[in-house]
Design a protein around this nucleic acid. Structure first.
Lengths: 202, 202
DNA sequence: CTGCAATTTTGCAGTGACTGCACATTCGGC
DNA sequence: GCCGAATGTGCAGTCACTGCAAAATTGCAG
């Protein structure tokens, strides 16, 4: 239920090709952004390097940004599922710290792509708008998941959305801090941030 | 020092005309978005309704979004100034609650424009990406201001950025909650959100 | 009030993201 | 091999946004 990103359905050639194309586009986009910066990269270039037509690019990603920082529907579901399940005595905030931190850590699956994404994320401040735009989707998915976990109706109370929004904001603040040459390592800062949030801000 | 948005420099005809044009574009944009929705409005239409050429639109706003939800450099400075000054025994978070709430409240200056903006903000979920993009500018300005107030060097510690980011996230969460038909009035929810943040989330 | 300099407006041409559509290609099952 | 479905591709078009240079407007000095 959690290891099916590579092994899953290698049966269908069609499905495999789609995965390959998507990944090729993803890597091409990251490559080019590292080389020339986000603004200087065109969708045509990305498609060309990935070996598909310009039109096909938009069959896979709705925007140039999505090819660089886009979160897959699958990833989204997996995060939501992780938040929904109630791990022994973990508070929602603790679960969120764990899950959001894992999004930045190069995980077992697709290390290269993750590491690449992370480096670009930290190095390109011009991607900030796209990044926060993408966060909206994550926030919505996680909010819905937390509402299910808490057993409240969607939108009934502020609590779930507030918790998720604050947690994401904390991680984002750490990223921005890093971008501006701030002190400390990312993981350590994230831990500190969540501690302060848990203790109450002033 | 705080009442110079209308009275200020009516001396120069040039300056006055610029203000008028900016305002006309702003109102035209809000009008059209209310009528047809953000996506269906073109910059040409906005310019046309405001009585200027299409090219001139981009002399005033860098993007279509900015004409609808853009925060002026002046507004930004005024918020920053408000946060920088240390009001008797107010904690940073309390100051932020006051200032951010005032951004949504139709203030004494330009009531109409503010009220219009607020209505559209709450009614058009499609503007969410643009909204969070705009928030980055606010966050940066307020972070710098808070750092000055706390007497720390820019980017030296996480604290200032974290506090500002969380405060903005809280307000945004309330707005999203409202958009999704959530319960309660906006101001009341904002108050509750800040109380929880101050008390520490779980 | 008149010409001059600075500022602003505008038209034009161009780039690039993104979309709908029709058609070709490929794949999976039979 | 054959057919329906999914996918890839070319084409034409819209629209946001930009740089550039000419035209209009404003401020100012004489």
């Amino acid at each position: 239920m959690s290891t099916d990103l590579l092994t899953d359905e290698s049966c269908g050639l069609r499905e495999r090709k789609k995965r390959e194309t998507r990944r090729a586009l993803n890597l091409a986009a990251l490559d080019l952004v590292e080389e020339k910066g986000f603004a200087a990269v065109t969708t045509e270039e990305i498609a060309s390097r990935a070996g598909v037509s310009a039109r096909t690019f938009f069959n896979y990603f709705p925007s140039k940004e999505a090819a660089v920082i886009g979160t897959t529907a699958e990833e989204l579901e997996s995060y939501a599922a992780a938040l929904e399940e109630d791990v022994h005595g973990e508070t929602p905030l603790e679960s969120l710290r764990r899950i959001l931190a894992s999004m930045l850590a190069p995980s077992s699956i697709d290390k290269e792509l993750r590491a690449r994404r992370r480096r670009i994320l930290l190095g390109e401040p011009s991607l900030a708008p796209a990044l926060v735009g993408n966060n909206i989707r994550i926030e919505n998915a996680l909010t819905a998941a937390l509402e299910r976990r808490l057993g409240v109706r969607p939108g009934a109370s502020l609590e779930a959305r507030l918790t998720v929004a604050v947690a994401i904001a904390a991680v984002r603040a750490c990223i921005e801090h890093q971008q501006n040459g701030g002190s400390g390592r990312l993981e350590r800062n994230i831990d500190q941030a969540f501690e302060r949030i848990g203790a109450g801000l002033r």
